[in-house]
């Protein structure tokens, strides 16, 4: 139990996917321009990452390991994730149109979100159990959602600022992200 608590705490705060592991920077910078889109993306990622952590665990321990094909895990995982995203998209379209309307446009982007594949590979590397893997996937996606929502708020304020010309657009965003990362690195001092 305490192990799971540590995994959740670590994934959300100390080892936050965005600010300390650098997984999923592209959507973090790409779709954080409005808090509402940031929340939509975060929810879509949370949904996919939770399911994909379970699916990749099964694929690795039920399919690859018994046949000694561990070295094919990258190919297998990306295929599982791509198929899963497609499947979730079709499922939501048919059975939960309102949820599809909210998350639909973000789903195709998630296949190439390195956070999803990253979480799957970290789970295998750390040799986590099934429950731990799913908890890790869900909680690191929550950490991602938190980071992207906080940053969307910061960006909304920054719309009205007037940085030097060379810093306009992308560079000033990165510097704001650096300040946020500094705050998050404070958590890394917390060891249990």
């Amino acid at each position: 139990m305490s192990n799971i608590f540590l995994i959740v705490f670590g994934a959300v705060l100390t080892e936050n996917f965005i600010f300390s592991r650098f997984y999923g920077i592209c959507p973090f910078l790409g779709v954080s321009d409005k808090p509402s889109t940031a929340l939509g993306m975060g929810m879509a990622v949370t949904f996919v990452m939770t399911v994909s952590s379970a699916a990749t665990y099964c694929a690795y321990y039920l399919l690859l390991k018994p046949f000694g094909l561990e070295y094919l895990k990258t190919i297998a995982f990306i295929l599982v994730i791509a198929a899963l995203v497609q499947f979730i998209e079709m499922f939501l379209k048919k059975y939960a149109p309102s949820l599809y309307g909210a998350l639909g446009i973000y789903l195709p982007l998630i296949t190439t979100n390195c956070a999803v594949l990253g979480a799957a590979l970290v789970n295998i590397q750390e040799q986590r159990s099934f429950i731990e893997s799913v908890m890790f996937g869900a909680s690191s996606a929550l950490g991602f959602t938190m980071a992207i929502c906080v940053f969307a708020g910061v960006r909304a304020k920054m719309e009205f600022s007037n940085p030097p010309k060379a810093f306009r657009g992308f560079p000033i965003l990165l510097i704001a992200a650096a300040l946020a990362a500094m705050a998050f690195s404070g958590f890394s001092g917390m060891k249990f």
Binding site: F19, S20, A166, I172, A178, F184
Partner: peptide, 13 residues
């Protein structure tokens, strides 16, 4: 990590 964001920001600027 903070230095990574900071450096990339300044380099792109």
């Amino acid at each position: 990590p903070a230095g990574a964001f900071l450096t990339l920001g300044f380099v792109i600027a």
